[in-house]
Design a protein around this nucleic acid. Sequence first.
DNA 1: ATTACTTATATTGTATACAATACTAAAATT
DNA 2: AATTTTAGTATTGTATACAATATAAGTAAT
Lengths: 218, 218
Amino acid sequence: MKKGVGQGGYSLREKIFHRLREDIINGKYKAGDSLVELKLAEEMGVSRTPIREAIRQLELEGLVSCIPNKGVIVEGVSRQDIEDIYAIRESLEGLAARWAIERISKEQLKELEDICELMEFYTEKEDLDHVGELNSRFHEIIFESTQSGPLKQVLSDFQFYIENTRLASLKTPGRARQSLKEHKAIVEAFKNRDVDAGELALVEHIRNSRKNVERLGR
Amino acid sequence: MKKGVGQGGYSLREKIFHRLREDIINGKYKAGDSLVELKLAEEMGVSRTPIREAIRQLELEGLVSCIPNKGVIVEGVSRQDIEDIYAIRESLEGLAARWAIERISKEQLKELEDICELMEFYTEKEDLDHVGELNSRFHEIIFESTQSGPLKQVLSDFQFYIENTRLASLKTPGRARQSLKEHKAIVEAFKNRDVDAGELALVEHIRNSRKNVERLGR
DNA sequence: ATTACTTATATTGTATACAATACTAAAATT
DNA sequence: AATTTTAGTATTGTATACAATATAAGTAAT
């Protein structure tokens, strides 16, 4: 479901949703802050309607919580949430690997390989922002190739939540190079359609990412 | 004066959201159906505003998909989705068990025990609708007691999706009694704060449920 | 001084009005 | 006959208007 261009999708509501979500993830609005519809509306030069609809979606994602007739307060993504998400991924991505290897298309597999090469290129150049983007895309393809709506939805959402953390993690000394190796191992297993090796490689990759993030936290 | 949408202390939007979600899960609106805002609004005796907000939330949950300026069509929950969800639960509930056992409060543990007793009571009486409700509550408490926002959110959502399937499964011969045994084993492990036993018992419970549902499918 | 009770204001919840877009089908052109 | 044009309609997207509720401040009563 790739949406259009720029900061969001086509409709105002969609753009606002993505913008607010970004602002919460990036900490512009911190946990405990209250969001006032009219204020946001004026800030963005739109009416309250699309703002409200965006907020309703944020509510469902748990990024804000709404108290009826009172207002909405930002929940945000806590450090604990992020650690939990890594643990959840560690439990889920083995499943994702199995399904993906069984169902991935030739085109998707090719894309994984291409991404891996590009990752190597940008890793050498130490352009880690680009590596981060490729990383996201890499895993997104795996989620997609599982052909499981529920699994894809969960993992994609979580991936977005931890985007910043992951980028920071990638920038710790040596991590990018190690991460590249892990991605190569994953692709290798995928190419061989080796389910066990793929599961192992992907889970190991998550585990290492997690460890690195935990180091980052202190 | 409330009209059309039944009563309750919540906002119209919230009631409509829950109602539409139910109607999709229960198959009143099937995959491929298109939802027209004005029609729904008239049907429920409200304006388009709360309808739209509810639909935006359904969209985020993936139960409908919206095509800008065109309309929204129902996605629903497919049989494949349900099977996937059981597989996902099998991967996740071990983690849930570990966290829950480490963090559950005395009150929550007591509630699990009480529910288990009630389950036994209603199972004997073969009042399986009641057993189903207790079942939901049982697992909801476990999710809650993990004290993990992300994990709770995922598992709660999925639990709702499979509610009907699970109830049907419970009504197959002998399953209720077996399920009761499994719940007792879970509570026992929780009482002993035995992480390994708890993980095993809960995962085994999911696995058996899944097997039973798969039998149900053919 | 404290409590209870108004009044004022801010904010959300809902309804309606208007604008933009997509679909349909009939009319016009070739 | 086929294609394009165009008018009309249905539906969504956005803005505004109105209603309900909550917060805060000030006033009266004890």
